[in-house]
Design a protein around this nucleic acid. Sequence first.
DNA 1: TAATGTTAGGAAACCGGTTTCCTAACCGTG
DNA 2: CACGGTTAGGAAACCGGTTTCCTAACATTA
Lengths: 345, 345
Amino acid sequence: MSKITINDIAKAAGVAKSTVSKVLNDAASISEETKRKVRDIMKEMNYTPSSIATQLARKSSFNVGLLIDLSRKDDFLNHFFYAIIGGIESVIGKHQYELTICNASSNPGGENESPDFMNRLVRNGKVDGLIMDSSIWSAETERLLSELQFPYVLIGDAPAEVTYSAVDIDNENGGRLLAQHLIAQGYKRIAFICGEGEGEPLFDRRVSGCANALREHGLALESRLVLAGTANEANGRLFMEQLLALPAEEQPDAVICMNNYTAFGALEAARAAGVSLPSQLGIATFDDYPLAPYTNPPLTCLKMDTFELGVQAAHMLMTRISQPSAAAEQRLIPAALITRASTVR
Amino acid sequence: MSKITINDIAKAAGVAKSTVSKVLNDAASISEETKRKVRDIMKEMNYTPSSIATQLARKSSFNVGLLIDLSRKDDFLNHFFYAIIGGIESVIGKHQYELTICNASSNPGGENESPDFMNRLVRNGKVDGLIMDSSIWSAETERLLSELQFPYVLIGDAPAEVTYSAVDIDNENGGRLLAQHLIAQGYKRIAFICGEGEGEPLFDRRVSGCANALREHGLALESRLVLAGTANEANGRLFMEQLLALPAEEQPDAVICMNNYTAFGALEAARAAGVSLPSQLGIATFDDYPLAPYTNPPLTCLKMDTFELGVQAAHMLMTRISQPSAAAEQRLIPAALITRASTVR
DNA sequence: TAATGTTAGGAAACCGGTTTCCTAACCGTG
DNA sequence: CACGGTTAGGAAACCGGTTTCCTAACATTA
């Protein structure tokens, strides 16, 4: 007994296959009586239409692709990946779409070669749209996709005047929230540690959010207190030691960390130096990894709703797929301040 | 200019479409000269064959599905998801397969209803095989899939005499490795904290690995020192406090923790109680989350190669897809002991 | 009653590939 | 030179749906 097809149903019901197809799509031109009859037979024969055949006939794959660089480790996407996927799935599932994951790093494409995924996913019709991490973006990718008028949405930072759709966490406002909280707690000299430095969008936005909040309160983010370097535990430790080595009157009374690794290093360095937290020094950080509530003292964090990031990216993509002519848009997901003991005095 | 198809190529090359198809598949019956000519035209016209049409004709989707419960948070899969996917992708990509992610929790299926994914993914032909987290498994799912002779592989614990393929981390040997290491360091009274308790495969296997290693060294895992409870930070802390409250001669001199959250809680509780680590008490743990090397003291861990877990699962699935009659097999991925200061005295 | 409109459902083309089967042309051989 | 064997490539059926167009049967109106 091989697979049941539309022809088998048509034969069994004594109708034309076109009629069966119309029943599948609940066409108005088929009487309720016929529909009932055909549906009964479908149930009886345990029929499920082939989605491949539908895809071919409809010229649509009902798949969206998520393009990420699976070779990158320990970065933002890595950690929040699960929630992002959950968010995407929750939206596209309702539209009967599936999610295909593709590794963009397997062949990034050279000068004359287009990236691997262009053939594997886009040109061959395996997906109807693409969500991609902004690390995948390149002018060439952009050119190829827009030439095909192919719908896509970026997750991550997008320059101000872009022609494509993008979603990101509102990092600038995040920096602002952290700074405002510290100011409200009476901290005055605030330092910012780690990040690749000027030119890196994530760093720039967060720092500028901090700086703006300080300025609005008559304070300043001193450039000497902004220390750039890969955001890991080692640099967190190192930079904290450097800050504590400053003359007393130049030392910060609060530090904002780029992520939890940095914060963890900074925290341990401060504890090791015998600094009393949070009275003498406040520590706050971007991101909220699972252990942050359990450090000593627990860390004040800026929590990012990455599920929502996936949700919004998926919404925007579905819109672009159904209305190709709609204007591109950029959205920012607000981040939430989680106040814990490391900054409450 | 709509999409270029095989017919356009055939016309432009002055050959039959069957010839073009044969060129695509590098058939022996086509001369090198014709192949060259047709390929030149393909390149010139920027042709990519429709994978949907190929799928229909070949009756194969060249897709595998990964079935997970996206509603579950903070569990094993959640954290290691990224690496597992990377492992799967690295294998199936070489076979020209893509990976489709599906949320198994959207409609788990009731008594008479089969689970959502059976229609969305399996019966409609969207995927040729399935990799699923063992939490998805149910007798009904098993029945439905094997009735269709549909290839699938489980990730996670599988009972000894199962008829399906499965991969898991070798948890029993992991328990053994941790215990052996502690014994070698001179620890004698070993406790095991957290896990749902007897009947939970993960707990049973790990505990039994520990117990066996101890037995082989003339020691025993005392049941009073095995404390069951959800493996989180709070229970790690709580159980450590309970252990430290025992009469001195009954206290353990080493603790094996179910995961890093547990270990973190236990570590903080021990520090708070003024226990000197690792001389007075050793702490070792399953899993190696990013912060484990940076605790004070750094934690000895059992690191799991989840990328390899994905790799093996994918290998087994590809085998089952290409050779449906091949026997099912179970594999265990060895875990690696990472020795750090928390147990080295 | 004849002309017209409406409706349910069927026939066939179509989506873009693959595969089977067949044939014309060429080969070497006796 | 006639014959059987090989080879390159074409015609057509096929995969399993969708869609367009058409028609027979019935209802409506003048």
